[in-house]
Amino acid sequence: MIGSRKKIIVFVVIGLIAGFIYPVFADSHEDYLPFINGILTGLIGSVTIGLLELYYFDRHWGAKGFKTTLLTKTFLYTGVLAITLITVKVFNESLYYQVGFWSYLKGEQFQHFLFEEDFQLILLYALAIIGFVFFINQLSLKMGPGVLWNIIWGKYHKPKKETVVLLYIDLKSSTRITEKLGAERYHHFINRFYQDISGPILSKKGKVYRYVGDQITIFWNEEEAFENANCIQFYLDVKQQMRSLADSYQRDFGQPPDFRACCHMGELVVGQIGDVKSQIVFHGEALYICEMIEKKCKELNEDFLVSDDVHRRLEANTTIVFREMDSLVINNGHDFRLHAIDLK
C-alpha cells in the first residue's frame, strides 16, 4: 500500500516527541528515568499503532463512517498506549529499584501512580493527541493522498510546471443507465465503481485528480507512470477486476459497468486556487487533448486509446501489443497519433 512506510515514520516521530515532551512538563523526578519511560512508551506504542493500522485497519476495516472509525481508533490506541506505558514503566522501574516485575506492579508506589497520581492525566493527554492525529489523518484521506500535505506546505501556492500522465475513465451509456436506475441508484452504481477501482489506483500508484459527472481523472508523475508501465497496467487491472465483479454488479444493478479510457501526457501548470475553498488544479493543453482523445474513443468505438507521447515511452518496458490508429488532429493543426490495445 502506498505511503505505508511514510505513515509509520510519521507515527513514530509523533510518538517520540510526545513521549519526550510529557515528562518535561509534568514530572517531578529530576533523573533520567521518566524520559526513558516516555521515549520507550512513545516508540513501542507508535510502532504497535502503526502495525495495527497497516495490518488491520488498512486491509480489513473497510469503508465505515468517519465518526465510527475515529472513535474506535482513538479509544483502541489510547488503550494500547496505556498498556504499553504500564508495562514499560513497571519493567524499567522494577529494574531500577531492583525488585521483581510483579511485586513492583502490585507495590504501593506503582498503585499510587495508577490511581492517585499522573496516570489519568497521561491518559487524557494521550487521548487528545491520538484523537487529533487520527482526525487529521482521516480528513487527509477524504481529501486524497498528498492534497492536505501540499496545501499545508503551500507547494503549489505559486503555480509551477510539472509533467503529468493523465488517464480519463468514463462510464459508457450513462444517460441510458441513469434513466433505467433513477438518479439515486445510479449514484450508488457509480460510487461502487469508484470504490472498486480504488484498489488498482493505489496499487498502480495513481492519484485521483477529480470526479466530473461520471468521469474520473487519474494522474501519475512521469516516473511512477512508466515504472512497470503502471498507467497501462492500471487499465488492464480495472478491466480484469470488472470482469470478476460482473456478476455482483449484474445482481445489484442489472448490468456491469462498461467504460472507456484514454491516456495522454504533457506538461501542465499545477497551482492552488481559491480562498474559502482551495483546490489544487491542473491547467494546460494536455487536459484538452485528453478530452479530445476521449471523444475520439467514442467515435471509433474503442475502449482504450493511448497517445503517441505515452506510447513512445512505453515501448521499452512492456510486452503489451498496440495497434496503431488514425491521428487526432486538433484545431491548431497539431496531430497526435493514437494507439489502441487488443485484449485477449
Partner: peptide, 12 residues
Amino acid sequence: VLQAEVGTIKSK
C-alpha cells in the same frame, strides 16, 4: 439537486 458523497481515496 441530488447531493452525495462520492469516491473513497478522494471524496467529494
